[in-house]
Design a protein around this nucleic acid. Structure first.
Lengths: 226, 226
DNA sequence: AAAGGTCTTTGACCTAAGTCAAGCGGCGCG
DNA sequence: CGCGCCGCTTGACTTAGGTCAAAGACCTTT
């Protein structure tokens, strides 16, 4: 229980809530565990609540009829997911799968909505979370529609660089195959683009470690396209 | 003022609010008008509030460096837009332009947030609106990444058919050029696909009027791709 | 009704990126 | 220590859809 409270009070969703409210939140939370590769929910399932990642890594994705996958988000510790059905009614709009051994908290819909009724600042926090997500989606649509794959990859590397606070090199936290799916392409294409960026001395790729050789050029590439 | 109240009480965002709250909402709303083609806000602008369409039509879109446009949404009467900066802080993530002569209501951020503090059900309504928008985005990403242009067009026609409650024919409410931008393609490609669907006796195109000749085949096309 | 603009269509061409198929390399397992 | 597996790479080929250019179609304004 203390662990649960500690996790919750670190999550941005519950930022700034008074102690007593945090405890109320913790009371309605249920612990769940998922193995690597295990499905958490499927598109079309009814959502009776949402999740918070305690540790591990979860991907949210869509599948086409012929099995091609597009990753929408990857969520790590402290991030909530699966909120859409809680507020819009209806089913999950996508699938969720643990891509690492993961521990989650589950917040049942009804209890959470009750809590919101009593806690306006929790509502505002949730509005902030959903707004950030919308902002993220505008970027993803922009990337898919207006940028070519090299630009998307460059943008992703720069995003990682900001996240890991390192302008020299970054470590991919997902496999290259998953990265391809996140960028809206396939492993073969991604591999070729890594090679090309290598050949152009933009980066150096060694397994999951990417070293930046020409950061400004990468930024350039990520924005426009030549 | 009565007109304002009437507009507000019809909008889903304010569904189920008691009379007195509707009046409070109306008090903070400001009327604004935009000519066809007029810019409402630009990506990167600070958002001190959000909008509600009274009448007219507004497109939300992104631009690439070389001027290509991707439409994210088209909003008509009763629909709110521009909420993201209200709750996430920061700037508008995209541009907004009136594509018809439009009258809008503007809700200043601060006044609205105050209102939410006092009105939990308004918060829940707004959460529902944002959740629906997220759901919509998952579909858009799926379309862009996993479906080809003919499937996207078919899906859009079926969506229109549901909206206009007519399985025989629909009327496009935007130009074909704008439709191309909404579907993530260009007018030339869209035009060719209309021709092809014509030739295959799926639809008949006469200006903005699309008559369905083989609805089931269209549904088939919209989902998978052969 | 002519003129001028915008929207739409058509044709010829090009290219980014997907498909298919085969090979490589590192890692866990027996 | 060698075998098999999975993730990744490489090559040859195909194709959806973008580009560029020009011609129609339409609608408004005079």
């Amino acid at each position: 229980m203390e662990k649960t409270i500690a996790t919750i009070s670190k999550a941005v969703l519950f930022n700034g809530l008074p102690e007593t409210h945090i405890e109320q939140v913790a009371e309605i939370a249920l612990k769940q565990s998922f193995n690597k590769g295990e499905l958490i929910f499927s598109e079309g399932d009814d959502g009776n609540g949402f999740f918070l990642v305690v540790d591990g890594l979860v991907k949210i994705f869509k599948l086409s009829l012929d099995g091609k996958e597009q990753i929408l988000h990857i969520f790590g510790p402290g991030e909530p997911f699966g909120e859409v059905p809680v507020f819009s009614g209806r089913a999950f709009p996508a699938n969720a799968e643990a891509i690492q051994e993961s521990r989650l908290l589950f917040f049942p819909r009804k209890a959470f909505v009750n809590l919101i009724h009593k806690t306006p600042s929790l509502a505002l926090n949730m509005l902030a979370v959903l707004s950030m997500r919308l902002r993220q989606f505008t970027v993803q649509v922009e990337n898919l529609s207006l940028k070519e794959v090299p630009a998307r990859l460059a943008a992703y590397l720069i995003y990682l660089s900001a996240e890991q606070e390192n302008k020299k090199a970054v470590e991919l936290e997902i496999s290259k195959g998953q990265l391809a799916s996140l960028l809206g392409t396939i492993p073969e294409t991604l591999s070729r683009i890594f090679q090309k960026m290598n050949a152009q001395h933009l980066i150096e790729v060694k397994g999951r470690r990417i070293t930046f050789l020409d950061y400004p050029a990468l930024e350039e590439l990520s924005m426009g396209e030549v």
